[in-house]
Simulated assay, not measured.
Amino acid sequence: MKIAVRTKESAYKALEREFESTLVNELIPGILHNFANPLNGIMGRSKLLQRRMNEHFNKIKECCPDFAREIVDEQDKLSTDVISICKESDRFFYLFQDLASKFYVISDNRFERINLKKLIENELRFLEFYLDFKHEIKKTIKLTSDMPWIYGTQSGYSLCFSALLRSSMYRMKKSETKELSIITDCDERNIMVVIQDTGAKMIVNTDSATEGDSLLSCNVDMSSLVCVQLLFKEYNVKSVFEGKTGWNRVTLQIPVNRESST
C-alpha cells in the first residue's frame, strides 16, 4: 500500500487507512479464530455444570430428603443461575456464528448455487450489530419459503445486499418514520426482491434507463449503490431504483439459471 505523507494529519490518516486495510482479510479472521476455543470451552463447561448440578441435587434428595427440603430455595437459585449462564453462552455463540459466517461469505469468490433466502436472513442478522438498525428501525420481512437456488458468488451477493440495506439504514437516520420492508416472490425463472424504506429521497437518473434498469446518479452518497448495480449486471440481475418523497424502493429481478455475463 503506497502512502503519500505531507503533514502530520495526512500521516495519521495514512496509517489509519493502512490499519483498516488489514481488518477484513487478516485481523478479523484471527480474532474469530482466537475467540472460538474459549467460547467452545465456556459452552461445554456450562452444559457440564448444569448436568452435574442436577445429578448432585438428585443424590441429596435420595440420601437426605429432609436436608433436600431445607435447601430447596438455594437449589432453585443455583438452577436459575446456571440456566441463565447456559442461555447467555448459547446467545453469544449465535452472535459469534453470525459474525464469523459474514466474514467467511465475503471471502468466498466461487461461482456456485446460492440459497438467497438464507443469505438475506444472514445479512439481516449481521446488521443487528449496527445498533441503529437493531433498535430504531421497524422491519417487515416476508421471504418466500420455497425460493429456488440462484447462481453467482456468495461474496458478490453478500456485499450487494449489505450495501443496499446499509444504504436504507443511513437514509433513514434523520427520518421521523424508520421502516424497512423486504418482500420476495418467485416463479421457475426469476426471484423478485423488493426493498423499501422511508428514508431521504434516493437520487435516480431515469433519462438514460435501459432494459428495465434505472441508473443511479453517481455522487458520493450513491456511489456504493452504483457499484451494486454494476455487480448485479454481472449476474444478469435487473434492478430498478425509485426515489420518492417519503419512500424509496429497490426492485430486483434475479434469474435462477446459471447464466452470467462474464
Rank of each mutant, 00 (worst) to 15 (best):
Q196G: 01
E188C: 09
D66R: 15
P29F: 02
V5D: 06
A4G: 01
Y104N: 04
P65G: 03
V24Y: 08
K118A: 14
T184P: 03
R171P: 07
I195P: 06
V237Q: 04
N37T: 14
M1H: 11
S101D: 13
Y170P: 06
R17M: 11
C218M: 05
R189S: 10
K238M: 13
R171C: 08
S145E: 14
I71L: 15
F92L: 15
G243M: 06
R258D: 07
N248G: 10
P65V: 00
K201Q: 11
R91H: 14
T206C: 09
S162T: 10
E62L: 12
S79P: 10
A163L: 01
G212V: 00
Y170H: 11
T210G: 00
Y151V: 01
K102I: 12
S217T: 07
S107A: 08
S89I: 02
C186R: 03
K118D: 12
V204P: 02
G199N: 05
S260A: 11
L49R: 06
L143N: 09
V204Q: 05
W149D: 14
S223L: 05
A68D: 13
N40V: 04
S89V: 06
T144C: 11
V240P: 00
A200I: 08
Q97G: 01
M43F: 04
E188D: 13
R69V: 14
D132L: 14
R258S: 10
M53H: 13
K142C: 11
S101Q: 11
R17W: 06
K87Y: 09
I182N: 01
K13T: 08
E211M: 09
E136P: 04
S167M: 04
I182T: 03
V226S: 07
E176I: 06
M43V: 13
E62Y: 00
V193I: 13
L119S: 08
S21D: 05
H135L: 15
N236D: 13
S261F: 07
R45N: 09
V240Y: 07
V24F: 08
I141C: 11
R69L: 15
K61N: 13
I3T: 03
N115K: 11
S239K: 02
I150M: 09
N190V: 10
M147N: 02
N257S: 15
E242P: 08
D132C: 05
I191Q: 01
V194M: 04
Q229W: 00
T262W: 13
A100W: 01
Y170I: 12
S217Y: 06
K77M: 14
N205E: 06
K59P: 01
M192W: 00
T262A: 09
D73S: 15
L39R: 01
T206A: 12
I83P: 07
F57Y: 14
K2Y: 03
D185R: 11
L32R: 06
V256N: 05
A14E: 14
L165W: 01
M147R: 02
D90T: 14
Y170M: 11
M202S: 09
